[in-house]
Computed example of a mutant assay.
Amino acid sequence: MITPMDNAGPADPAVGADSGRADDPGAPGTPQVPCARPRGRPRSAAAERAILDATLRLIGRHRSVAALSIEAVAQEAGVGKATIYRRWPNKEALVIAAVEAAEQPIPELDGENVRDDLIRLLVMMRQNLLDRRAEGLVSLVLGEVGRHPELHRRYHEVVIERRREAMRVVLRRGVATGELRGDIPIELMKDLFTAPMLIRKMLDDTDVPADLPELIVDSVLRGVAGSSDETR
């Protein structure tokens, strides 16, 4: 259950990054112009991005939800606390939003051949592994799983499962077209392509060369390719 970890203080009058009109429509001499804009303050995309980026930077430094505070995020982002609380009710909700914002989109897969699509997926995986923000998120999620199960659930749903399903789609298509063997379970085949890069990252943080995705795909394909495949 998500419980607020920081209570919102009084509204910050200094916050103006996403404020409404500065003029008073009821003041004498002010033209009364009809306005179709919905009531309330519009949200500033720039302020929201600054808050999420600040949260990710602090996560990378502290790698703990407990060590994170709304006050610290506000200071890092250059906004008032009220600006944050208007968007997220508590610290955990903010961290979950940062997790979702940090995830890179799944690359466009043209489906012309399995090899190229697998390489695209592993290139994305490599980029995520080299992203220090993503590394901080992984450490945070694994370390906070018992205290913040919703954070772990959302990370698994938004990050892990999206990547796994994209890989499954490519592998199933490869089996259907005969590019891949049909006698190997999809989950095992998925692990054969993804595990080498994860292990390389764990054992040697700096040794994840740019050509590793292509090397892994071509090496694994020699064992899992279908009889009609002509992989290079």
Rank of each mutant, 00 (worst) to 15 (best):
M1I: 06
T3P: 00
M5N: 03
M5G: 11
D6T: 12
D6M: 07
D6V: 11
N7H: 12
A8D: 07
P10M: 14
P10L: 14
P10H: 13
P10I: 14
D12P: 11
D12Y: 06
G16I: 00
G16K: 05
A17Y: 13
D18L: 01
D18C: 09
S19Y: 02
S19N: 03
G20Q: 06
R21W: 07
A22R: 14
D24M: 00
P25L: 11
P28E: 10
G29E: 05
G29H: 07
G29A: 08
C35A: 10
C35F: 03
A36Y: 03
R37I: 08
R37P: 00
P38E: 02
G40M: 09
G40E: 06
R41H: 09
S44H: 03
R49D: 07
A50C: 10
I51W: 03
L52P: 06
L52G: 03
R57L: 07
I59S: 01
G60W: 10
S64L: 06
V65F: 04
A66S: 15
A67Q: 04
L68R: 04
S69E: 12
A77D: 09
A77P: 06
G78E: 04
G80M: 01
T83G: 07
I84H: 00
I84V: 05
W88K: 06
P89A: 15
N90T: 14
K91D: 13
E92Y: 10
V95G: 02
V95D: 02
I96S: 04
A98I: 06
A101H: 12
A102W: 04
P105K: 03
P105Q: 07
P105E: 10
P105Y: 04
I106D: 12
P107T: 07
E108M: 03
L109P: 11
D110G: 12
G111I: 13
E112K: 12
E112S: 14
N113P: 04
R115S: 06
D117H: 10
L118C: 03
I119H: 07
I119M: 05
L122F: 09
M124Y: 11
R126E: 10
L129D: 00
L130H: 01
R132N: 04
A134V: 04
L137K: 05
L137M: 06
V138P: 03
L140M: 14
L142S: 15
V145D: 10
V145S: 11
G146T: 08
P149W: 01
E150R: 09
L151V: 10
H152I: 01
R154T: 09
H156M: 03
V159S: 10
V159F: 10
R163I: 07
E165K: 03
E165Y: 02
M167P: 00
M167A: 08
R168I: 05
R172K: 12
R172V: 14
R173V: 01
R173G: 05
R173F: 08
G174Y: 05
L180I: 08
G182V: 04
M189D: 11
L192R: 14
F193A: 07
P196H: 15
M197F: 09
L198I: 02
I199E: 05
I199S: 10
I199T: 09
K201M: 01
M202N: 15
L203W: 10
D205M: 13
D205P: 09
D205A: 15
T206E: 15
D207M: 03
A210S: 11
L212D: 10
L215R: 15
I216W: 13
D218Q: 08
L221A: 05
G223Y: 15
A225F: 01
S227V: 14
S228I: 15
